[in-house]
């Protein structure tokens, strides 16, 4: 994640109303993402209720582990920018990449193709989920190319606390589970404090329309 500028006096936590609105908006984005992967894989996708949490820097690795479990994971990161900035960490757990490859219809499951596959799936999920959130809020965002963050690593080691530059992060966590397979995918959206304040203003604008 890049360094943030955090202006003094900005509200870096969300109010209950803002969190509720964000949860519902994330839910809509998540539904669109779920529909996209259901169409690709021809399988019913179970959606979780999005969870929103303000997390302090030192707690980020532990919270991440709490969200995705104890088992080693594969993770991809993808940044978004524009009127809102942040980073999405996509965590795949519960099944080997070869199972994902089978789902995507890839014949050759060598390592490079497995990794490309994870990047493809990540791109689809992030685009549908975050794109839906941005569309509902009426803001423009773009996405960088996804990149592999870690392979077969402990969730606790995914983001070492000393590498986190932000004083606080907003976690928006959604989980997709395939009904017929032991496979789950978590999307964790992390936003630095200054961006949380900006998001809060966008949510207020949205709430005023209700």
């Amino acid at each position: 994640m890049s360094e943030e500028t955090e202006s003094v006096g900005t509200n870096t936590t969300l109010s209950d109303d803002q969190r509720d609105a964000l949860q519902e908006i994330a839910n809509i984005g998540m539904g669109q993402a779920g529909s996209s992967i259901a169409r690709i894989w021809g399988e019913f996708v179970r959606l979780s209720i999005p969870r929103i949490a303000n997390v302090e820097r030192q707690d980020i690795p532990a919270v991440l582990q709490q969200l995705v479990g104890e088992k080693n994971i594969l993770a991809v990161r993808q940044a978004f920018h524009g009127q809102l900035r942040g980073e999405v960490i996509i965590v795949f757990s519960g099944g080997p990449p070869s199972e994902l490859a089978e789902l995507m219809g890839y014949d050759d499951t060598d390592r490079i193709e497995e990794l490309e596959l994870l990047l493809d799936v990540s791109n689809i999920l992030v685009g549908a989920c975050l794109g839906g959130v941005a569309s509902t809020l009426g803001v423009d965002i773009g996405f960088s190319a996804p990149s592999i963050m870690g392979i077969d690593i402990s969730p606790r080691d995914l983001i070492p606390a000393d590498e986190i530059l932000h004083s606080r992060a907003l976690f928006i966590e959604v989980c997709f589970t395939l009904e017929q397979r032991s496979f789950a995918c978590h999307l964790v959206v992390m936003m630095p404090a200054g961006e949380i304040a900006r998001l809060g203003k966008e949510l207020d604008r949205f709430l005023e329309t209700l």
Binding site: G31, A38, F44
Partner: peptide, 9 residues
């Protein structure tokens, strides 16, 4: 009334 817009849903 749902955000889960999968055809199967």
């Amino acid at each position: 009334v749902s955000a889960d817009v999968q055809e199967k849903a």
